[in-house]
Amino acid sequence: MRGVRVLNYVWVVMLISGFIVGMFSGRMEEVTKAAFDSTGKAVELAIGLLGIICLWTGLMKIAEKSGLVKGLAKILLPLLKLLFPDIPDKHPALGAVVMNLTANFLGLGNAATPLGIKAMEEMQKLNRFRRKANRSMSMFIILNTSAVQLIPATIIAVRASAKSHSPGDIIGPIWIASICSCLAGIAAVKLFCSKKDGR
């Protein structure tokens, strides 16, 4: 949930330009009120998410402990071999990649990150150029950033706390949109990243 450096600028620009526009439009009182009201709203949002996040992390712990994650990873493995032709069979990189992607699919953010770092380290061992990303790494990153999530719990919680009549009705649309985005990302990597980049 942390941002990157750009966020420092975005944050300052939003605040300063907001206050300046507020001065010129004569809405200074509303702006100040909005600023203080929103602190309460931020906490309300977090509290509103608390229940579903607890429910979900609890449920996913069961999935993890019962071996469901490993089982799902086994099913996904043949598919992933197609996407990572440069990683040799039985190489530990493939195992780490598939576990990370499965954890992501189930929304296990905390478990996914260390697995992802492990996957990158294993792929680095196969890398011809130490400082340059190879196409397996690019593919892995794309699958992470555009990954399909089975149940997008956070956004359902936000919608539920905003009194939506059907907070979960965006699950299907989210699957479709992320499958489209994932396919586009895979196609882009396949087109742009050449084999001569090394495996």
């Binding site: 990158m120 150029f129 990303a133 990153i141 950033t145 956004i155 989210i174 949109a177 990597v189 990243c193």
Partner: peptide, 28 residues
């Protein structure tokens, strides 16, 4: 739907490439 269908791209890039000190990220 937009919120739910992608991850935080730059954060993911930063931690994963950062973890193995990749400088040239190519077309990623």
């Amino acid at each position: 739907t937009m919120m739910g269908s992608t991850e935080t791209t730059f954060y993911t890039l930063t931690i994963y490439f950062g973890a193995i000190s990749i400088r040239d990220t190519g077309f990623t």
